[in-house]
Amino acid sequence: MLKTRIIPCLDVDGGRVVKGVNFLDIIDAGDPVAQAKVYNAQGADELCFLDITATHQGRDTILDVVRHVADEVFMPMTVGGGISTIAHIRNLLNAGADKVSINSAAVKNPDFVRDAAEKCGSQCIVVAIDAKAKEDGSAGWEIFTHGGRKGTGIDAVEWAIKMAEYGAGEILLTSMDRDGTKAGFNLPLTRAVADAVSVPVIASGGVGNLQHLVDGVKEGHASAVLAASIFHFGEYTVQEAKEAMREAGIAVRL
């Protein structure tokens, strides 16, 4: 039986992990390889690196991160953040990434997703969607860019369907109104998107406790759950998260 995945996410800035797992036995908390090894040992099903490097010059540092991590841990790795060209995708895949997540570039030019899927294969193209309640107050959810500041007027469910048709192999859905709140996923949004597309949906944004992960799967119908801070700050291990999910009747790899 296919297992529900738990995916810890690490933010990388200029090649260094920020907000990493703060354990005593990690000498260098900014070292992506050390962080990846922790999550590998905890039984994480995949790793996600989000490159938040602001400067153009710093962009290539993510390639070194991917190379070093891929040399040390043998598990699936998704990389996102500022990806807007086929060359950039190829470089990341050649460095050892398995999937790339495309966000703003897809909103700007949907055909980029189609092109990327045709050239690199749908299996490695994840479309990241940041959504929250529509600005005009009408029903449903809207896509936002620029860290949730800029509304696009695009309906989140329709967008997800379109992206899957364009060749996205997976959708990474972030509940923007929940991100950082620790109040749990936006479950109606998650369920609406997960039920609308045939590709797997990863729920993200707002996880504050292990019940939120359970809810994302049971009520949000997500195929995988992604979380950052609950793992970063050592509140829970991936192992504990999986045990909680198993107790709730969700099939996980333990």
């Binding site: 039986m1 296919l2 299996q123 045939s198 797997p200 790899r253």
Partner: peptide, 13 residues
């Protein structure tokens, strides 16, 4: 049709 996600993506026995 419509029962399972495609691709078959993730860990399975």
């Amino acid at each position: 049709a419509g029962t399972l996600k495609i691709p078959h993506m993730g860990w399975n026995e």
